[in-house]
Simulated assay, not measured.
Amino acid sequence: MLDADFFRRWMTATAASVDREAQRLTALDSEIGDADHGINMQRGFTAVTAALEEEAPDTPGAVLVLAARQLISKVGGASGPLYGTLLRRTGKELGDTAEVGEEQLAAALREGVDAVMKLGGAAPGDKTMIDALVPAVDALADGFAAARAAAEQGAEATIPLQARKGRASYLGERSIGHQDPGATSSALLIAALEEAAEG
């Protein structure tokens, strides 16, 4: 069973990973976006870890809702609302229970991903974070390592795609040949689940 400590570890592992990869995320974003994705995500997840140290929520759902609030208020551009929606909806689906199973997490995360698709109007193949998140959620039934691999493959699979949503879509065919920064940061979020489980 996964408790609030697991979810705190998930968020802090994501923050550490975003910290390490911030320059790469910004470099990817400089090719097809506003060149600020790494910096924005870093600022958001730094705020998440600070808030979790201050408040220490005692249920999995509350951890994610608190993280969502920080991301919505601190991350610029579209990423704040999209990541905030993902975590808030997932947290709301988990409810007030003190512990959740992996199946519950997978079902809640699917609701979160659906909410992101609704908010952003993106579908798989549009070269967005959805291209990493959908395969990850599909693979979660086989465990965190499978989800991580699926998310990483999904992010890499955005390279040959032409962007149909977001800032990159303005580039048309020039968006082809670049890995999507949102899919890349989403893969970091999923990879951190496996780290949290090991920790």
Rank of each mutant, 00 (worst) to 15 (best):
residue 117 M to L: 11
residue 109 L to H: 06
residue 152 E to F: 03
residue 84 G to E: 09
residue 27 A to K: 14
residue 52 L to S: 02
residue 62 A to T: 00
residue 51 A to Y: 01
residue 171 L to Y: 03
residue 100 V to P: 00
residue 32 I to N: 00
residue 27 A to P: 07
residue 157 A to M: 13
residue 6 F to G: 06
residue 42 Q to Y: 07
residue 198 E to A: 13
residue 55 E to Y: 11
residue 182 G to M: 06
residue 125 G to E: 07
residue 37 H to A: 04
residue 131 D to L: 10
residue 44 G to R: 03
residue 19 D to I: 04
residue 62 A to K: 05
residue 15 A to N: 03
residue 92 K to M: 15
residue 106 A to T: 00
residue 177 G to P: 10
residue 5 D to T: 12
residue 176 I to K: 15
residue 62 A to R: 05
residue 180 D to W: 06
residue 197 A to L: 15
residue 149 A to F: 13
residue 21 E to Y: 14
residue 131 D to V: 10
residue 80 G to Y: 07
residue 2 L to D: 00
residue 75 V to G: 08
residue 64 L to W: 01
residue 153 Q to M: 15
residue 71 L to A: 06
residue 125 G to K: 10
residue 197 A to E: 09
residue 130 I to L: 10
residue 91 G to D: 03
residue 46 T to Q: 14
residue 132 A to D: 12
residue 53 E to T: 13
residue 136 A to N: 05
residue 162 Q to N: 06
residue 14 T to Q: 09
residue 75 V to E: 05
residue 68 A to D: 09
residue 157 A to P: 08
residue 14 T to H: 05
residue 59 T to N: 02
residue 56 A to P: 07
residue 36 D to L: 09
residue 15 A to Y: 00
residue 108 A to S: 08
residue 65 V to E: 08
residue 10 W to T: 07
residue 169 S to Y: 09
residue 115 A to E: 10
residue 179 Q to C: 07
residue 91 G to R: 06
residue 15 A to S: 10
residue 45 F to G: 10
residue 8 R to V: 13
residue 156 E to T: 15
residue 68 A to W: 00
residue 176 I to V: 15
residue 139 A to F: 07
residue 84 G to L: 04
residue 179 Q to M: 15
residue 71 L to D: 02
residue 110 R to D: 08
residue 24 R to D: 11
residue 156 E to H: 12
residue 67 A to D: 11
residue 36 D to F: 00
residue 123 A to H: 11
residue 120 G to T: 14
residue 136 A to K: 01
residue 25 L to H: 02
residue 185 S to C: 04
residue 1 M to T: 13
residue 62 A to F: 02
residue 170 Y to G: 08
residue 165 K to H: 10
residue 40 N to G: 15
residue 86 L to A: 03
residue 110 R to G: 01
residue 65 V to G: 13
residue 12 T to A: 01
residue 40 N to R: 14
residue 86 L to D: 02
residue 33 G to P: 03
residue 179 Q to N: 09
residue 152 E to H: 04
residue 191 A to L: 07
residue 23 Q to R: 09
residue 97 T to A: 14
residue 86 L to C: 07
residue 6 F to K: 02
residue 29 D to H: 00
residue 142 D to W: 02
residue 120 G to A: 11
residue 147 A to Y: 07
residue 86 L to F: 01
residue 179 Q to V: 14
residue 126 D to V: 13
residue 2 L to A: 03
residue 68 A to E: 05
residue 171 L to Q: 14
residue 124 P to T: 12
residue 58 D to N: 12
residue 104 Q to E: 09
residue 179 Q to E: 15
residue 194 E to W: 05
residue 4 A to K: 08
residue 52 L to F: 04
residue 104 Q to F: 05
residue 177 G to M: 10
residue 88 R to L: 04
residue 120 G to R: 13
residue 74 K to G: 08
residue 136 A to V: 02
residue 13 A to M: 00
residue 38 G to H: 11
residue 86 L to V: 06
residue 71 L to Y: 11
residue 61 G to L: 04
residue 113 V to I: 08
residue 91 G to I: 01
residue 93 E to M: 12
residue 139 A to H: 11
residue 37 H to R: 09
residue 97 T to I: 08
residue 155 A to C: 09
residue 101 G to R: 03
